[in-house]
């Protein structure tokens, strides 16, 4: 890893002031589980690292307006153990407990889960975020079995966040703070499609910090996450679905279905959501929703297997949310 200056400010303003307005010059450190590996691989070579864990206001989970405000430096373990989270947000607890290992959950933060860089092996091996060489992406004809089945050329990597699909399904927002103040936006708007190898996959400015996640009340909202993974630990899921169902008795009044690890951003399965409205869930309907969720997918040469994994993830997440046996 390249040598860097280090600072541990105690306020968001101080931290923002220490960040460069150009990408690559400074990095924000929280849990470090992604950043330190990126630096060891020389994928990030910041001149300065700004540790935000010493900023008290970025820690802790607070009840607010019926929902929760989750500080960016809350660890994944703290999130999964939090009583108010466990009471209303099983989809978040399940997604948090799916995150690789106890060590990573103890170190990694909620903000870091949302801001981690993609796991795409072309990116991680130094071919750039989009894996572009001589003007063309290496991925469509390359080793793409873990890549997107909802690609958005030139982006073929998958969004690595475990929490984002659940947060989007729950209607959560993120708060971003920069030199000009703060802005709040829905979690789905945090992610964007980069235009070239040097762009970023989030809308964060280089000197902006994700400071808080605002989750609305989930009273009466049945929610669940289902992940399909190759290994029980130490890896990201192959496919995941998070669902949030507003119910009237046994009838679904509205559904949110968000897919993880299948596209460069979390994928909102609109067609599947619409077909559930006004209906009572059963195994067949859940399976139909799973099919609808991948109807627009365009798998690559090696990853069509993810279609079935995603159908199953959607079906099982729906059944779990509705309290039915899959």
């Amino acid at each position: 890893m390249q040598a860097f200056e280090y600072a541990s400010p105690t306020s968001v303003k101080e931290a923002v002031d220490m960040l460069s307005s150009n990408w690559g010059e400074t990095d924000v450190l929280a849990g470090g589980t992604d950043l330190i590996s990126l630096m060891k691989e020389y994928l990030h070579t910041p001149k300065r690292v700004v540790n935000i864990k010493g900023i008290r206001e970025l820690g802790g989970i607070r009840k607010s307006g019926g929902g929760l405000r989750i500080g960016a430096t809350v660890t994944i373990d703290e999130l999964a153990e939090s009583a108010p989270v466990r009471a209303e947000y099983p989809s978040l607890v399940h997604a948090a407990l799916g995150i690789t290992s106890p060590q990573i959950r103890n170190m990694g933060t909620v903000g870091g889960d949302l801001c981690q860089r993609p796991r795409c092996w072309y990116f991680r091996q130094g071919f750039g975020l989009l894996g572009i060489e001589n003007g063309a992406s290496l991925i469509p004809d390359g080793e793409n079995k873990y890549h997107a089945i909802f690609p958005h050329p030139p982006a073929y990597y998958v969004n690595p966040s475990s929490l984002a699909p659940a947060l989007i399904a729950l209607g959560a927002k993120v708060k971003l703070t920069g030199p000009g103040g703060s802005r709040e936006l829905p979690v789905e708007q945090l992610y964007t499609i980069p235009k070239d190898n040097n762009s970023r996959e989030t809308v964060l400015a280089p000197n902006e910090i994700l400071t808080e996640i605002i989750v609305p009340s989930a009273k009466g909202v049945r929610n669940a996450t289902y992940e399909v993974r190759q290994k029980e630990a130490l890896d990201w899921p192959l496919s995941a679905a998070a669902v949030a169902l507003k119910m009237k008795g046994t009838t679904i009044s509205s559904a949110r279905i968000v897919l993880g690890h299948v596209g460069p951003t979390p994928v909102i399965a609109g067609e599947a959501e619409r077909m559930l409205a006004g209906k009572s869930l059963n195994q067949n309907l859940a399976a139909e929703a799973g099919k609808a969720a991948v109807s627009g997918a365009k798998p690559l040469s090696e990853n069509a297997y993810k279609l079935q994994l995603t159908r199953v993830a959607v079906k099982r997440a729906l059944m779990e949310a509705a309290g039915l046996k899959a």
Partner: peptide, 15 residues
């Protein structure tokens, strides 16, 4: 000294 580094950056040399 590094512990209370606060908003003052330290390094990149030994601290």
């Amino acid at each position: 000294a590094a512990q209370g580094a606060g908003a003052k950056a330290v390094g990149p040399g030994a601290v």
